[in-house]
Design a protein around this nucleic acid. Sequence first.
DNA 1: GATGAATGAGGTTTCATTCAT
DNA 2: GATGAATGAAACCTCATTCAT
Lengths: 209, 209, 209, 209
Amino acid sequence: MMTDEVLWSQAGTEKHRRILDAALEMFAEQGYAGTATAEIARKAGVSEAAIFRHYKTKKDLLIGVVAPVLRVVAPALVADVKQIMSQRYPDLRSFLAVLVKDRVGFVRRHHRVLRIALQELPFHPEVRAIVDEVFVRDIYPHATGTITDLQRRGEMMELAPELVMRTIISITAGHAVHRYYLRPGAPFDEAVEMELLVRLLSKALGPER
Amino acid sequence: MMTDEVLWSQAGTEKHRRILDAALEMFAEQGYAGTATAEIARKAGVSEAAIFRHYKTKKDLLIGVVAPVLRVVAPALVADVKQIMSQRYPDLRSFLAVLVKDRVGFVRRHHRVLRIALQELPFHPEVRAIVDEVFVRDIYPHATGTITDLQRRGEMMELAPELVMRTIISITAGHAVHRYYLRPGAPFDEAVEMELLVRLLSKALGPER
Amino acid sequence: MMTDEVLWSQAGTEKHRRILDAALEMFAEQGYAGTATAEIARKAGVSEAAIFRHYKTKKDLLIGVVAPVLRVVAPALVADVKQIMSQRYPDLRSFLAVLVKDRVGFVRRHHRVLRIALQELPFHPEVRAIVDEVFVRDIYPHATGTITDLQRRGEMMELAPELVMRTIISITAGHAVHRYYLRPGAPFDEAVEMELLVRLLSKALGPER
Amino acid sequence: MMTDEVLWSQAGTEKHRRILDAALEMFAEQGYAGTATAEIARKAGVSEAAIFRHYKTKKDLLIGVVAPVLRVVAPALVADVKQIMSQRYPDLRSFLAVLVKDRVGFVRRHHRVLRIALQELPFHPEVRAIVDEVFVRDIYPHATGTITDLQRRGEMMELAPELVMRTIISITAGHAVHRYYLRPGAPFDEAVEMELLVRLLSKALGPER
DNA sequence: GATGAATGAGGTTTCATTCAT
DNA sequence: GATGAATGAAACCTCATTCAT
């Protein structure tokens, strides 16, 4: 089960990796502005100066934590989606089953980075730019094609692709926010929850009677 | 149309009100940790010391900004919901139409306080406590009754009330997040969006075929 | 005998004045880059934060130390010079006697600020700008008039006023540099030195045989 | 035309030379305290560690930059002066012509090192020691001899040799300061300026009428 | 012999909070 | 009651210097 820490491809040294791990955890827990570089250094077991050797500023460190996941990992997963999309499914439900499973897994693996990205989105133009870029360039175009295809085949209601995406994201994210943000630590059965998400989305987005 | 600033019932003096207005705006824009008390004082046109006359600490000020809306206003609106719920509707759709309109209006009026509450939720137990309290005490019980009633009448699919609520909140919040958080300033037609929300929720939550 | 410290007209409070005094002394002794704000604070007997309450940055403090003398005091002395210039002297020598005495006194009173100004001149455009401004606007024009007048009366050799000034300044400054910079603390007789300066300048600038 | 960089006789390797060149330039431009060793390393195209292989401390590097010029080059030029002095001149003016030309050339070739030496003089006893040593041991004795000789021959006014030297240095340095320090980059005609210096010095130091 | 990584000490600046006036 | 001044603590960041590789 790949976790965020595995993908510090930029980090050459062991200490560099520890810095990124610590920053990831602290930023997710306390927010960017609420985390002191000294705390990160302490948690990483390095000197503060070591942080600033790798990142000129604290904000560069934030970018260094958030960017890899959004820029390196997201597109990789988009490839999965493309592969998912390129296949034929007997119906909308089977398609959603595969898609939702993939997305839920993505969120599970990267929920801390995603939390940071969302939390800092309104405060840092740089973070917003990365999110925009990934969505507009990598995700949106492919999704549009698949959605219109499903609609042409009568499997999905007529609705602007953008709104279809927003609906899928809303329901999936609602689940994620509840799980990781509002009730962290609460027990839950991922398979059951996923089955529910698929059911709700199938009904909501299925063709109108 | 009532706005956040109107409800500083606690604020006796003009200055006190200006402090709360300034804090509301800065906390929403820059986050709690990213806002200096000096900035708030400057924006409010008062001395920093004036802030600390009314609030012992900066965190007290945060509570002073967030609590009124969640504690005073939310229950007031719950009363509306109760009234909404107590009526009989020809079908699920008409019910959702009224409910969604009410909720969307609430978010429109208080979106800055809501943003602060959500942003600071994970960092301040005090804020989380308020949100929990309002939900568990005021909203959840009433909603449960109404939902089971609708299900008994065959208007709504069988699903734990908590999950029904989460679905309604997810889709409504997804809309709000998009509007106020991801694309602030983008033009949009509230009536059309609300109609869409109702349509999607009707389909998602309607009885299974 | 007025000293630098007297002219902190900008300093409202006792502590503010102590900050400027300490900064003046430390900058003169150790240079701008070689002086820590903590040292200044300690010497002034205030907290470091107090410094940054009055001056946004360390460089602003430098300007705050240098500017008053160059901008407020220099023009005041220029007025003296103007008055000196407007009188008639029996010969070049008596004129130079008055002028040199005035200048030497100025340097004696403000040698620390002048030292700072000269030391930091090449590193800070702001300091250079002030020096340029004072010279070009206040000193150069008046001096030009007087010099050409003396030349018309046959008391002074023919030479571009700018070069006359540079000669006067060179010899006077050479004396000052020796006294305050190269051999600080060495005993010396100001009256004798001044008499020598006048003698050399009279000969150098007198009409050619 | 020899420049500073040529005389790094101590520098065995190419890298060592590049370090000294870079240090010379940065110290002259930004001052010793205002220059980081990292900047020097970057400009020299070597690692910071390389600097500390050659010089134990940053201050040692300063000495390594300043000392060669003052200790190795200055005496060499003193030899020239000695040779200049040992000749007979028809009058003071021709003597000064040769001397001034020599000195002005020296300053032109080494103005950056001289600037550093002057700038750092008050902050580093080591630098002061070198300057003192060169003056007291190499330059002063020879100059004294020559000056008294000229005075015995009636070519020069009666004045303590030290003061004669200070006068020559003041006027020459005034010219240099103007050229390299106050108005760097301004166009000027060295021959004309030198002629002026000789004229002024001849008049100032000539026998009294 | 050279370097990239690392760091302790210290740099400037900001912050929430207090207090004399 | 309100404020301008003040501050201790801590923020982010830089520096000269060392050391494992």
